[in-house]
């Protein structure tokens, strides 16, 4: 086939059509990408809804000693519902009311345990040590143990999860 020659007086039209083609095709591509990208990214920015849940009966808690309690959390995991179990330490104190600490070490996520002899929370993985109030005493943890909102509701302790 012979080579295509320029159309007479076509330079301006060529530029206009080139811009038109790029603009319309970009609009089509952009529309599809926005829908697909939006649907793909939406769950990444969904906010977590919090709720109050009964954690323990006040009568089961020893005064001043952190008691480990396993919370059973039913949560929506996309299209299915799953049950998570999370261990928290509940400490009842006449002055403080209740203090609930998440047992997860803030270093790399291992589960800390309460050592009654030293009155500290100790992480078995890398030697992190926390005080009774959750503040870091020793080791690599970058932050105190996470404290959960809690209150006394009648004869029970309820926590916000």
């Amino acid at each position: 086939m012979s080579t295509a020659g320029p159309l007479p007086g076509s330079h301006g039209r060529r530029n206009f059509l080139s811009r038109f083609v790029v603009a319309v095709q970009a609009a089509i591509g952009g529309a599809v990408s926005c829908v697909v990208g939006g649907a793909a990214l939406a769950p990444s920015f969904a906010s977590h809804t919090q709720s109050w849940q009964r954690a323990a009966a006040l009568a089961d808690l020893a005064d001043g000693v952190p008691t480990p309690v396993t919370l059973r959390l039913i949560r929506q995991d996309g299209y299915r519902q799953v049950v998570d179990r999370r261990v928290v330490y509940i400490q009842r104190d006449e002055a403080l009311g209740v203090r609930v600490l998440d047992s997860t070490c803030t270093h790399l996520g291992c589960r800390t345990r309460y050592d009654d002899a030293s009155k500290h929370f100790v992480c078995p993985c890398h030697g992190g040590v926390y005080d009774m109030d959750g503040s870091v005493l020793d080791g690599p943890p970058p932050a105190p143990l996470r404290r959960l909102e809690a209150r006394i509701d009648g004869t029970d302790v309820v926590v916000q999860v």
């Binding site: 086939m1 295509a4 020659g5 159309l7 060529r14 059509l17 038109f20 319309v24 089509i28 529309a31």
Partner: peptide, 22 residues
């Protein structure tokens, strides 16, 4: 007549048709 280049002369027609269908 002389052959017409595919771009942008025919691509513009393609694009208009694609835009309508889309």
């Amino acid at each position: 007549g002389a052959p017409v280049p595919f771009y942008p002369w025919h691509v513009a027609k393609d694009t208009l048709m694609m835009a309508a269908v889309f």
